[in-house]
Design a protein around this nucleic acid. Structure first.
Lengths: 339, 339
DNA sequence: GAACCGTGCGGGAGCGCTCCCACACCTCGC
DNA sequence: GCGAGGTGTGGGAGCGCTCCCGCACGGTTC
């Protein structure tokens, strides 16, 4: 019952069981082509019989490389980040690496603490969504030779790879869609302009409008990108636009509710596009058309770029990979009947 | 610039710099009381000067214990699980352990693969939300002497610790609340009865009703616990109850919308309580009263119980820790004015 | 038959650290 | 003045593994 004290088999045990040397077992496991097929078979039998599981930590001590990757996120609970985590976990699993979850909890000193931990563990690299755009904090990792790729943040190409979504394109396709549906009097409901994403989405929106001379674009800025502020804005709106692009689904959800309160019909009177394709977008009364971001792909790509850097070293060229968002069309821009 | 090749300082380098032996450095770091204060200070200076970072992997090789804990989840993207992850990450951080994120992706073979990985890494233990109630798969870990604590799943006490939320209590307080608000003709909108959580919440609801002779309780089962099915159920309801307990917030959100379509006023005509305190509960038109689960606490407690088992070994007694849910009262059971 | 080569295997050092033990030195007490 | 006891430090083996070599053996070739 209480077999807690069984010591796991070591490579020597396998060697003894198979009647070969430790080196040979190691070779069978790592460079099978060097060893005679019959010997290899014997070794493998012994491995199976003893249920031998190699100890990568010990191997790493010898070889100098570990097999863990850090994933540093401000908040796992946020869907955006947890989707990154999922993508990253999948990729890490596929490549036989383990992912160390580092939840920086929006606290810089904790982020720093995790960096130290990753240095200690000799992690092969890290995927990080940094708390601030200020890159000096990242230097702790970089000066230790731990490669990193940033997610959702730009980084100068000399410093490393990064992955992100093209927010300008997102804003553009959202507004293009509105224009295609016939809207001409457009409103962007945005978050603080200091948030890069918000600025980019707005700029994308402006680009789209520029192509249609007769269209005009207003902007209103919400203090926070929440349902409550969306609602508030809808209530205060003086003259109604015929198309609204909210730079986030929460704002859009609130806005729709506020408009509904005023008796405004969606999409007949006003068409609305959100951003993010969050759960809420499809749950809402009139399901929201929205911009979908391939976030899992970010995570996956991030660890793959990291591993490329680790494995290729010299030949590796840093890359800022930008993913294209897509439009999800739902009822908030789709006439109830017909096309 | 390209200092990628700098080799990190080893304990020997520190020893040399401080003019002491390797053992002394090790002692300063691990059992400072054994070493003279002045020597210790000299060593610490050297550590700082060389920016020495100890290598727990090497230490672990010697001591036999590693410092990583596995966290095996069906899906990081699910809020329930990501909240567990947050709690677990916080606790692990506080105790100086690193958390290895294992995303089993609802695939048993992948879960198994992660178990093997954890065995390889000699993880000190694992917190797992298993894919199936069948415990045999977990044996891979247990027979290797890797302690584990189950989250959100029962486990016989001989086999290990577990953490969970008391779903019966949750159902009870939800319905008690409805009763206190004067509802007597109650309906439970439930998920499949084969889901343990659903069965428990229903049973709790029945317990609560039993205390009020004049109250009655019906149940309707939704195929899936989604907004769509909640909506559907609201549409088909023949005679309206005056209180509804939905065993999940999605169902509740859909139900509310369906009732609103029919002109039913919430909470005036029908009071509604959801379950889970998901984001959606507060976003919805009439914010939902709902049962809140202290999920972060589960995660935190899980790793703490795990560490207790690891550190106390002999004295450790397995425990099935059950957390109490709480009620969050919002508009769906609160008369617009007054109490 | 000697020289050579290729293949397969084993010896053993060493990765960075911990920790047991021995040793040096100092202070007391008698 | 000598042993006992205490304190502080160092030597060195060994954790499980990898990988560089070097050796043995059998087969070619001239």
């Amino acid at each position: 019952m209480d077999d807690i004290s069984v010591r796991p088999a070591r490579i020597q045990d396998v060697a003894a069981a198979a009647g070969v040397s430790v080196s040979t077992v190691s070779n069978v496991l790592n460079r099978p082509e060097r060893v005679n097929a019959r010997t290899a078979a014997r070794v493998r039998d012994a491995v199976a019989a003893l249920d031998y599981v190699p100890h990568p930590g010990a191997a790493g001590l010898r070889t100098g490389h570990s097999s863990s990757i850090g994933l540093v996120l401000p908040d796992v609970t946020n869907t955006f980040y947890s989707r990154i985590a999922r993508g990253a976990a999948d990729a890490a699993y596929d490549h036989g690496y383990s992912l160390v979850l580092c939840h920086s909890a929006d606290a810089p000193e904790r982020e720093q603490g995790y960096f130290t931990m990753l240095v200690e563990q000799r992690a092969v690299g890290a995927v990080v969504v940094p708390l601030s755009a200020d890159p000096t904090r990242l230097s702790r990792l970089r000066e230790r030779g731990i490669p990193l790729v940033l997610a959702d943040r730009a980084m100068s190409a000399e410093d490393g790879c990064s992955v992100s979504v093209d927010d300008m394109a997102g804003g553009r396709i959202a507004v293009q869609h509105l224009l295609e549906r016939g809207a001409r009097d457009l409103l962007v409901v945005n978050g603080e302009r200091t948030i890069r994403q918000c600025a980019d989405r707005h700029q994308g929106a402006r680009q789209a409008v520029r192509s249609r001379r007769e269209a005009r674009l207003e902007q209103v800025v919400a203090k926070e990108m929440t349902v409550a502020y969306g609602l508030e804005i809808a209530r205060r709106l003086d003259d109604l636009p015929d198309g609204v692009f909210c730079t986030n689904d929460f704002l859009a959800a609130g806005l729709c509710r506020g408009l509904a309160e005023r008796g405004v019909r969606i999409p007949d009177d006003v068409q609305v596009v959100g951003y993010g394709d969050l759960d809420i977008a499809s749950f809402v009364g009139t399901p929201l058309s929205t911009v979908h971001q391939p976030v899992e792909d970010l995570g996956r790509a991030a660890v793959e770029m990291l591993l490329d850097e680790v494995e290729a070293r010299a030949e590796h060229a840093h890359e800022a990979r930008v993913f294209a968002p897509g439009l999800v069309v739902r009822d908030s821009t789709r006439p109830a009947s017909g096309g």
